[in-house]
Design a protein around this nucleic acid. Sequence first.
DNA 1: TGAGGCCTATTGTGATCACAAAATCTGCGG
DNA 2: CCGCAGATTTTGTGATCACAATAGGCCTCA
Lengths: 236, 236
Amino acid sequence: MKVLAESSALRARKVRSDRKPVSPVTAHESVYRQLKDRILFGGFKPGEPVTLRGIALDLQVGLMPIREAVRRLIAERALEMRDNRRVLVPPMSKEKFEQILYARLAFEPDLAARSCAHLTPEIIDDIEAIDNRLDLSVLNGDAERYMRGNFQFHFAIYERAGADMLAALVESVWLQFGPFMRMAYGRVGTGDLTDHHEEAIAAMRAGKPELVRCAIANDISQGMGFIGESVLDSVQ
Amino acid sequence: MKVLAESSALRARKVRSDRKPVSPVTAHESVYRQLKDRILFGGFKPGEPVTLRGIALDLQVGLMPIREAVRRLIAERALEMRDNRRVLVPPMSKEKFEQILYARLAFEPDLAARSCAHLTPEIIDDIEAIDNRLDLSVLNGDAERYMRGNFQFHFAIYERAGADMLAALVESVWLQFGPFMRMAYGRVGTGDLTDHHEEAIAAMRAGKPELVRCAIANDISQGMGFIGESVLDSVQ
DNA sequence: TGAGGCCTATTGTGATCACAAAATCTGCGG
DNA sequence: CCGCAGATTTTGTGATCACAATAGGCCTCA
């Protein structure tokens, strides 16, 4: 068995030496982004179990980067670890949904109002372009594209509020309802979706933070209320 | 050098075999709690660099649990990793302080109001006992004891609000101002500290959630305002 | 005396192995 | 046909090693 230990050590060294040159971003950050993408836009279903080795196989990386990325997502409550040490995508509950709605209303309208001071006409054009693509996704009934567009729209605004600590909190909140929303859209479709994005864009062009605040608040209330009524009762 | 590799492998195996039986809580969770304690109650100074091996030496555990605990704290923004991959305790800024104040006012008064429905007279007695010990710490000028007591007081209330998702967000916020507050108390002392805890306790006994909300909001505004004015300008 | 380039030590990252606990499968008896 | 105990597989955890990049000390040279 000494021979075995030796040979394995040599093989390890060999593998290690022709490792590709270090990339600018670490492996675990790359894994983190891919997992976050899946969680935000419906790559996972609520309650779905997640295993480290399974992800490692999917993403073709070693266990270590997976461990760090998953640990990070657990801390952000995007994943959940039960006391059996099993990791899974957290299921939604009525209480949790209510808390998410509260947190969104507490932060997002204010972030949008804050960002008004930093928006230029060009930036608003970009945001409007995002919203136009978004409308197309709704028409096509493409739930994943809709969710991506909706995320881009909101965070294109929030990230310019000059309040990255609050924006980070909001992102953590979005991570907690992504899988549920995907499932919800899968049930009720995207046909009846209406938003207050045009209203917000008009208010941004007019430079009226309070109207922007209002538009975003309505957008959240209506979008979440729509889903909450439709799906939440039947789930739990 | 083959011999060297062999012997180290054997030593490793030996160490592995007489590892103590697995504890109910994992090592990295134990590390996480200890680090969180330090961050919340002043064991670290803002801007202080943190190295994995340094902590491993302090806490007498291997590198792996440290890595997972630190990764978790970074995700909660209790620690910060610069792009040089150096980990440090995040320094405070005027902007960050303002955002923290906003987040606290958005969540904590509401959590306190929510908890009213679940409070029994015995629980309120316990909370009052915490507050009494707190007052002693203020008189003694013991900043760390004061911070521990203040944390216990607030979270004894929040954790009974039946809104653990919001409570987790609030804890993340506290982690972000712990080191700064410790430094601040070190400068201005605890002598002038006044709080609205008795007011909150009275409102809880009376069963008036709106008064509790008010008391907690005042407590936060006054406490943070006091520190903000005193220290923040001189820091940055 | 001070600024710039080498050199060493330190630090985070990732791979691999070993292990214990949980989960899953299996076969036996009711 | 079902339930349950034993065996097997899977899974998270932790240790250890190797490596690249950074930081910090040291020396040289202007």
